[in-house]
């Protein structure tokens, strides 16, 4: 018995260290690769093929970042952008998930609102900006409208498709277990389509993020997109690149912190492979 436990502990220790080794090796390789890119950038810019205005060296970009953070222009810009994004994307989630669930069940709604969503999805949401400004003025509401139009459609359609792919077995189990009416939506349809909702939420987020950046670039307000545009107008390419780096960084961070965690949650329950 004790021997057996010893063997088990040994095996699990070996396995852990093996996966741990893989993870750390992956990290080291990535880090080395990006260090290499940075070095290359430095080398190319020190060759002085182009002027610093066109091709800013790493040092200037770093300075722009530090300065922007120190005088709070960059941090305010990030805060403004994130606030818009959270309100707009949050609204999309609150409307999109229930609507998607309904669309997956009610053919009439799918034929009407569903086809409307398919149509609107073909329209890049930034095309809404002129109308949004006309309707809401140069305001936060206009920005959020653009974000919502960008993310809501893909979210609705992804959730709807998820609902339509729920195995018949779950749908049949629902009424005999007493899950009818709103309980059916809350306790069967919603959790059963969770993998699809995750996919939709991720897709919706990337659309929301792109829409917001486009809107901020086009319409001078505040926010990280406008900072980028301001850099262009001041011929401050270091600031432009700094803003680009921040945009990438926020995108990656959300993917890691929010979606990885949520996907892990789904994987633990559904088993590896997810889906149904």
């Amino acid at each position: 018995m004790q021997l057996e436990q010893g063997v088990k502990a040994e095996i699990s220790r070996l396995r852990l260290s093996a996966t741990g080794y893989k993870i750390w090796r992956g990290r080291a390789v990535r880090l080395a690769f990006f260090a290499l890119l940075l070095g290359l950038w430095q080398v190319v810019s020190s060759l002085e093929l182009w002027s610093d205005v066109i091709f800013p060296p790493p040092k200037e970009v770093a300075d722009a970042l530090v300065l922007g953070i120190r005088d709070a222009t960059l941090t305010t810009a990030i805060k403004d952008s994130m606030q818009r994004l959270c309100i707009g994307y949050g609204t999309s989630l609150i409307i999109g998930i229930p609507l998607g669930l309904l669309l997956g069940r009610k053919q009439l709604l799918d034929d009407t609102i569903g086809s409307l969503a398919v149509g609107f999805q073909a329209l890049p949401s930034i095309c809404w900006l002129p109308l949004a400004v006309l309707w809401f003025g140069l305001s936060e509401t206009a920005m959020q409208f653009v974000i919502i139009m960008g993310s809501l459609m893909s979210l609705i359609l992804a959730v709807r498709d998820g609902v339509k792919n729920i195995p018949t077995l779950y749908l049949r189990a629902a009424p005999i277990l007493g899950a009818t009416g709103w309980r059916f939506y809350r306790y069967i349809l919603f959790p059963a389509s969770l993998p699809a909702i995750m996919t939709g939420a991720k897709l919706g987020w990337s659309f929301a993020w792109r829409s917001l950046m486009a809107a901020e670039l086009l319409y001078v307000t505040s926010g990280i997109g406008s900072t980028l545009m301001m850099g262009r107008e001041l011929h401050d390419m270091a600031l432009v690149v700094a803003a680009m780096i921040i945009i990438i960084f926020i995108g990656l961070l959300t993917d890691r912190l929010v979606f990885r965690v949520a996907e892990g949650f789904v994987h633990r329950r559904w088993g590896v492979g997810g889906g149904n």
Partner: peptide
């Protein structure tokens, strides 16, 4: 109805 419960061949348990 809940008064006629079915036990399926493929269990039909909820993965969530």
């Amino acid at each position: 109805s809940t008064q006629r419960f079915v036990m399926f061949q493929d269990h039909g348990l909820f993965p969530w």
